[in-house]
Design a binder for these strands. Structure first.
Length: 483
RNA sequence: GGCGGCAUAGCCAAGCGGUAAGGCAGGGGCCUGCAAAGCCUUUAUUCCCCAGUUCGAAUCUGGGUGCCGCCUCCA
């Protein structure tokens, strides 16, 4: 079995071969912390979280790094609007980020570098590029000279000439610093601060780093000159990742990343959701009304490179789908004791099923294609559980069920799907077994006497207390407490 | 204007040359005093359109049509 991934750099699907066998260095472009995370951030974090989980499951040791951009004009603007500092704003939204991600079940990265902690590396890198002739200073700014880098555009498949032809005047109109640049597509590595603005000292004067240079510096600092996987949202491909390549590869002469992976955008009502369009749904608002696992399943149902249209209808489908998986996952909680798993807990997975799953998912992280395997297991377990509940027995062996459950739990964990056992509801008003038995007896008598009004009244009374009755063929009635 | 992507049932969606996974929703049946729950079963002669390659195409090629993304801050 070989894992193959779609590499944005080559626009082809390629076998995945890490630099060092068994180990993976992975960097995912994180968020600029000037506001709460929206669904788009959620998708990106979730997709790469699952990719990372999968790689680990496949036996790789993954070193996963995700950055925070905590120096940025938008953070500064918000700080000025609120009469506070960039630090305070950044800190607030970094905390919010961690809260949201924990609720979503996203595993912690191994490192969260921040621009504010990477300034020395950034300045060193800018100096180096300047010395090498890739960058030039202009009135306290430092710009990267794109024409000096012959490969510029290789990631996004653009040529500088095409870019110029396509931009046709727009760049000049919108870029106030255009007169300082040799080329309109030169971009800032370092920007001089205006008076009153927070700034950091540098060889070029007081200022702040440009947006793209931070990632080049932090990748190098955390993972080295060439990494295995560089991931991020598809909208970062140009110019952000293109510029990262230009910076890092010019400086080191080595490839920045072997595999560039990009996830598709989230759409709302068919339109891209983005901060600039203002049509975004924040993750925290959504998580207040949607089970995080439902959201996770919803997002996993679409291949990571495809656009994902967010709709209430789709979410409702995922909600029901999650119930199915959830029932399968809770099989152990509900029936384990009955099956004697207390003493002999299930601990083996079905290797054939593991293999089937891996074969599907190895094809460019096709989680959506692997999901039916989980549904297959969950439905079988649910069915067996229902038979146990309704008939008290099942023909499947306890051992067989244990393997199925263990396999399901393992694969669900790869996808980050976790079912929490529900708290027992209505415990205060719950009846004892004896009380229930008595009422059930009374109802059976009433039914025999064809006094259905009374029988139904007892049934309703028990239902109100969370006790569900099952009339079986032959007249016997089983009952269970609602879970 | 340049670059790229996508079009599969009511909805979501996998599929990458060998005769349409799966989820959701829906239909039918069994059981039942009626329910509920459960169990069983069923749902695309066809993959946007047209032409071509092939023994064979949803899958490959060419041409349309429609939608979307990037080219400016964006995950």
């Amino acid at each position: 079995m070989t894992l193959t991934v779609f590499n944005s750099l080559t626009r082809r699907q390629e076998p995945f071969i890490p630099i060092e066998s068994g180990k993976i260095g992975m960097y995912c472009c994180g968020v600029t912390v000037y506001d709460y995370c929206h669904l788009g951030h959620g998708r990106t974090c979730l997709v790469w979280d699952v990719v990372r989980r999968y790689l680990e499951w496949r036996g790789y040791q993954v070193h996963y790094v995700q950055n925070f951009t905590d120096i940025d004009d938008k953070i500064l603007k918000r700080a000025q609007d609120e009469g506070t500092t960039m630090e305070e704003i950044a800190e607030r939204f970094i905390q919010a980020y961690f809260d949201d991600m924990e609720r979503l079940g996203v595993k912690k990265a191994d490192a969260y570098p921040r621009v504010t902690h990477a300034l020395d590396g950034i300045k060193r890198l800018v100096s180096q590029l300047e010395n090498q002739g890739y960058a030039y200073a202009a009135n306290g700014d430092v710009y990267y000279a794109v024409h000096q880098f012959p490969d510029y555009g290789k990631l996004s498949g653009r040529k500088l000439e095409d870019l110029k032809a396509g931009a046709s005047g727009r760049v000049e109109e919108t870029d106030p610093d255009i007169h300082k640049k040799y080329d309109p597509f030169d971009f800032a590595l370092w920007k001089a601060a205006k008076p009153e603005e927070p700034s950091f000292s540098s060889p070029w004067g007081e200022g702040r780093p440009g947006w793209h240079i931070e990632c080049s510096a932090m990748v190098k600092q955390e993972l080295g000159e060439t990494i295995d996987i560089h991931a991020g949202g598809g909208d970062l491909m140009f110019p952000h990742h293109e510029n990262e390549i230009a910076q890092s590869e010019a400086a080191t002469g080595k490839p920045l990343a072997r595999y560039w992976l990009h996830n598709g955008m989230v759409k709302v009502e068919g339109e891209k959701m983005s901060k600039s369009l203002g049509n975004f749904i924040t993750l925290r608002d959504l998580l207040d009304r949607v089970d995080p696992m439902v959201l996770r399943l919803f997002m996993l149902q679409t291949h990571y490179r495809k656009p994902l249209d967010f709709t209430d209808e789709g979410l409702a489908g995922a909600r029901n789908g999650w119930n199915t998986l959830r029932e399968g996952l809770l099989f152990k909680t509900h029936y384990g004791k009955q099956l004697g798993w207390d003493h002999n807990p299930p601990q083996k997975s079905d290797e054939q099923i593991q293999k089937r799953f891996a074969e599907v998912v190895d094809d460019d992280f096709n989680f959506a294609g692997g999901l039916p395997i989980l549904f297959e297991l969950a439905k079988e377990l649910r069915r067996e559980g229902n038979l146990l509940l309704h008939q008290g027995t099942t023909e499947a062996s306890a051992k067989e069920l244990a393997v199925k459950w263990h396999t399901l739990a393992e694969l669900a964990d790869v996808l980050g799907l976790e079912a929490k056992a529900e708290e027992t509801t209505s415990s205060a008003s719950s009846l004892s077994d004896e009380e229930i038995e008595t009422l059930v007896q009374q109802r059976t008598q009433a039914r025999k006497a064809k006094n259905f009004a009374q029988a139904d009244q007892i049934r309703d009374q028990l239902k109100a207390k969370g006790v569900i009755l099952i009339d079986q063929p032959g007249g016997e009635t089983r009952w269970y407490r609602e879970q």
